[in-house]
Design a protein around this nucleic acid. Structure first.
Lengths: 181, 181
DNA sequence: TAGTATTACGATAGACGTAACAATA
DNA sequence: TATTGTTACGTCTATCGTAATACTA
């Protein structure tokens, strides 16, 4: 038993026809027939009565159908959860910026984040280079944005991964240097 | 995504170890690793954090786990329904017997049916050979039991299939001839 | 005859185990 | 070093489509 077979089963039950189910699923007729045959062999009973002009559910098929529907429904629910949860950046990032940059950068950042990573919380600290460097080193800040060109020291952390990919492009376009711990 | 992968996922999540899950499922370690990798690739996010000493669920994995559990639970429920429904004989069978046989045969029959086919309803008609033969021919009776030896005409019907396999042995033991339409 | 389901067959893809490798406590 | 997870490779099974067959209105 697998989800593909159950999907085929439900569709055939609804359409009353293997060939129409095959067209809907865009697979060969023979595959529909075999998937049903596999289920019936595994379960030891016929799901459909073959009338020669389509198929009709047997008593057994009628018993199984609602349970199979619930199973596929739960499968859909799982897929939904996956789609809206997978790859979502989440967590809190502590960012330090220069006072002179805050006015221009923060609005951009929040707009970007609200679209591309709504689950990310932001803690912004204003300060000058020396102070920011110090807080970066002590771990109180996850990343800082300063307007001097230099090498970016990489000490990969979760928090970095969150903002890095989001900000990197925008930062480069504004000729900023992103230094991160 | 398939049920096998989800089963593996849930077991690994509970045990916190791929190797222990592999032993439990009696499959190769590498297969567990690959099944998880397949899920992660399909879903675009990591389910586990690899610690080098087992694994721990990521945020994503924690979101998915309960939904996967519901899915597997529904799969079990489906299997249960299948097991207790597949191959079950059900329906109503119209049987004709000789008055002289009713006393001996009916108690046996009902006991047998209640154990081996509780879903089968029985309509019993008493009568003599000629009458029973007539009703058999007209379709009002599905099968008759008479105490003369003769060839059994087979015109396979659903109703016949129901009682035939149940009664055949008992009937033979009592040297009865079962004729069915 | 037209529409339907089943069966046969060959090609492709996927699952699986073994074993070597990498990484961690 | 022992235990764990990952990767590579060969084998084997299963899936799938095409096409031929059988059945019914």
């Amino acid at each position: 038993m697998n989800l593909k077979q159950l999907e085929t089963f439900m569709l055939v039950a609804n359409l009353g026809s293997l060939s129409r189910a095959a067209k809907t699923l865009d697979i060969a007729q023979s595959l529909v027939s075999r998937q049903l045959a596999q289920l019936e062999a595994e379960w030891g009973d016929r799901l459909f009565e073959r009338t020669g002009r389509g198929v009709v559910l047997t008593d057994f098929g009628r018993r199984v159908q609602p349970e199979a529907g619930l199973l596929l429904g739960q499968a859909d629910r799982l897929q939904t959860v996956v789609k809206e949860t997978a790859g979502v950046l989440a967590g809190t990032v502590h960012v330090g910026v220069l006072p002179s940059m805050a006015r221009h950068l923060l609005p951009l950042l929040f707009m970007d984040l609200s679209v591309r990573a709504p689950a990310v919380r932001l803690h912004v600290t204003e300060g000058f280079s020396g102070s920011l460097d110090e807080q970066l080193g002590s771990g109180r800040l996850d990343m800082i944005v300063v307007n001097r060109y230099g090498a970016s020291t990489e000490r990969g952390e979760d928090a970095l991964a969150l903002l890095w990919q989001i900000w990197l492009k925008a930062a480069c376009e504004q000729h900023l240097t992103v230094r991160a711990s």
